[in-house]
């Protein structure tokens, strides 16, 4: 397969379980090497342009990257430190925008699956990354949170960002430039 993503575009990957959506996303993030072919960022293979690529990449995967023994706020502070360009959005504000502001001093172990997902998604707000890669960002979220996430994605696209996401759901990207690629069975 081959695809290209430009600024202000959204690409949704759809496909049955086991069709390789997650593997594709992890390959795009440079976490697993591609069996064949390459991933390019600004016309250069990402292996040769790691610094430039990773400084523009934000990834929320199946594994959330959240420590159970840290509070929501402490987890986001680490994300802020790891980010190449921390945004002006504070940890408190980011968690607030995802509707879990009041849980920020709670250990993530005590949070529900949906709340943990929101903590992971709040990562997108504390850094300025051009390219968002989201693996099933809406699972475990209630309808209101799903709306919030879709809005965030929409705003990011409108501001010239790029989003690659997997989802089984039919999403309403009202007016945003978006494409859907359906993966066949492996």
């Amino acid at each position: 397969m081959s695809f290209e993503l430009k600024s202000g575009e959204l690409l949704q990957i759809d496909g049955a379980n086991g069709s390789g959506k997650t593997t594709l996303l992890r390959t795009v993030c440079g976490l697993v090497p591609a069996d064949e072919g390459n991933v390019y960022w600004c016309n250069r293979p990402i292996q040769q342009n790691r610094q430039g690529y990773f400084s523009q990449l934000a990834f929320v995967g199946h594994k959330h990257g959240i420590k159970d023994e840290l509070t929501a706020a402490e987890n986001l502070e680490i994300d802020q430190i790891l980010a190449a360009n921390p945004s002006s959005v504070s940890v408190r504000e980011a968690l607030g925008r995802l509707g879990i502001g009041e849980c920020r001093h709670q250990l993530c172990r005590e949070l529900s699956a949906g709340q943990r997902q929101r903590v992971a998604l709040a990562r997108l707000l504390v850094s300025i990354a051009h390219f968002w890669v989201l693996d099933e960002p809406l699972t475990a979220l209630d309808q209101e949170a799903q709306r919030t996430v879709c809005d965030l994605v929409g705003q990011h696209i409108a501001a010239g960002g790029m989003v690659l996401l997997t989802s089984h759901q039919k999403l309403d990207w009202s007016g945003q430039a978006h494409r859907i690629i359906k993966l066949g069975n492996a």
Binding site: C29, L31, F59, H62, K63, H64, G65, L82, A84
Partner: peptide, 12 residues
């Protein structure tokens, strides 16, 4: 828990 992934894709 996936924290290592986040470190690996950090440009730091």
């Amino acid at each position: 828990d996936g924290s290592l992934e986040q470190m690996l894709i950090s440009s730091r």
